[in-house]
Nucleic acid binder design. Structure first.
Lengths: 290, 290
DNA sequence: CTTTGCAAG
DNA sequence: CTTGTAAAG
């Protein structure tokens, strides 16, 4: 086996914190793990072995975004898992956007969208309720080339903030998915060159800030407040991933009211199979049998 | 190396005549070879090594059909051959149809189409004139699903017959290309099931018969009048090629007036890289320096 | 660069 | 089944 010849190539690769946390501050071990992955096409992702990776990881809830397929074309490998799959895809264009959620235990309830037919047409929000929390699987709309969809995005962001704020009143919420925004300059390789790029406009960053302000924690930053190069997305163009020229677009937000139950938040940069990598949140919840 | 386990699979594979002919009946050795190949996408064909095969074969004229690319996207490997390339592609839709012709010596003249703007819009006829003959590279229009283009095809066939008849008055003509018709039941695996399939309707077969009647020889049948399974096309669907479930759609027709100069006509079923295989005609012409 | 669907064969 | 494309990211 050959060592990397160019140390510069490795210079900025994110190295996860040496000791992943297993427990809360008061010493309770995690008993609920949510993994989120933008798969960039479910069928291609399964072919590339993404599912095996996820099965080895065995989360309690798995949130998938950009499935790009309707229920009828979900690969057999996923169907045969015998889990409780729930899908949300645009009815007119099932190969665009779309998401899926699997869970080890059957949710108490599953809801689709945010209650606004216009904003819900693209399969971007899926909420599963469990005894101790709700999980919101989300794929925030991209602002598009030339920011052609920025105004739609802004309307969407605002509605989403109200939606999850409402949920948070009754139970803690884990918002897991591709939020399609890099919050801070620290969250992308080239902040100065992307001030008007989709995903780093002040409009999108402000909406994210407001979402946090509504009572949610950016769980990864709770544990790694200033860790650079912790990206979750790399464009396929010009070999961005091997150079770690990326963006942190995927998040697990967690209700501030549940802060004491938060054990860890991780970014799994090694996982291949998509232009995004998975992110995960580790919780120690009351009344979960392990 | 393992022998084929299933002899039934090989049962109907075409085996070329044991001794390819090098000379005319009166003993003159061939000095002019034309190869024709429907490449089903020039760029993919080059990637799959089709060009190497052709270079090893070194024809005097190479006719390619279904190049599916405009002049600007011809692969560098072909450009750098330094030959005399001529192309004919639809201007509005260069990824459809299209053809190219390369020759070892520069043609006296090259013409595009048949002189009818409506029938010539798709890049289906390219004529190169040489001292001793003309070579017509042709890609006859497919009659389409549900025979939706059969009437266009019939108009096209009729015009093409007049066009080549006219050429034949002044010099012998080699009509090389994908004629998109299986002439006789012998020329496809399943004639009974394809009576109304594009490529074996009576309308298309009649037009082919009329083309021969206008003074052209089906050169392959001159030497192999009743050889079965001599196919040049196999659909990519359901592994048709390994079972040799194919059609003879590619031909080298040759002016009856040049009969004495005809040495051989071959179908190269081994050549990979397209759903068609190449066909070639071998001529012994006056005044060709070798 | 890669996914998806599409038209065409 | 494979080619090419376009839209989307």
């Amino acid at each position: 086996m050959e060592l990397c010849r160019d140390p510069a190539q490795l210079r900025d690769l994110y190295v996860p914190p040496p000791r992943p946390r297993d427990t809360t501050e008061d010493g309770r071990r995690f008993n609920f793990k949510v993994t989120s992955w933008n798969v960039d096409g479910l069928r291609a992702w399964v072919k590339k072995g993404g599912l095996e990776r996820v099965q080895a990881d065995a989360p309690d809830v798995l949130c998938l975004q950009e499935t790009k397929c309707g229920a009828e074309s979900v690969p057999e490998e996923l169907r045969s898992l015998g889990a409780f799959p729930h899908q949300h895809s645009p009815s007119d264009q099932p190969s665009y956007s779309g998401m899926g959620l699997l869970s080890r235990t059957k949710p108490l309830a599953v809801t689709y969208g945010m209650g606004d037919p216009e904003l819900d047409a693209e399969g971007r929000v899926l909420t599963a309720e469990f005894p101790a929390l709700r999980v919101v699987c989300v794929y925030v709309p991209n602002s598009g080339r030339g920011l052609g969809r920025l105004s739609f995005r802004q309307a969407w962001d605002e509605r989403f903030c109200s939606f999850v704020s409402q949920l948070d009143r009754s139970k803690p919420v884990a918002i897991c998915g591709d939020l399609n925004v890099a919050h801070q300059p620290l969250d992308l390789r080239n902040p100065s060159g992307n001030k008007r790029s989709p995903g780093f406009t002040w409009e999108e960053r402000k909406a994210f800030r407001e979402l946090l302000g509504a009572g949610f924690l950016d769980s990864f930053r709770v544990f790694n407040p200033s860790l650079p190069n912790a990206f979750t997305f790399w464009t396929y163009l010009s070999g961005a991933r091997v150079r770690n020229v990326g963006w942190r677009l995927d998040y697990c937000l967690w209700s501030q009211r549940g802060r004491k139950d938060l054990c860890d938040s991780r970014i799994e940069q090694r996982a291949q199979g998509s232009d995004h990598c998975p992110v995960g949140i580790y919780l120690a919840l009351e009344g979960i049998r392990t």
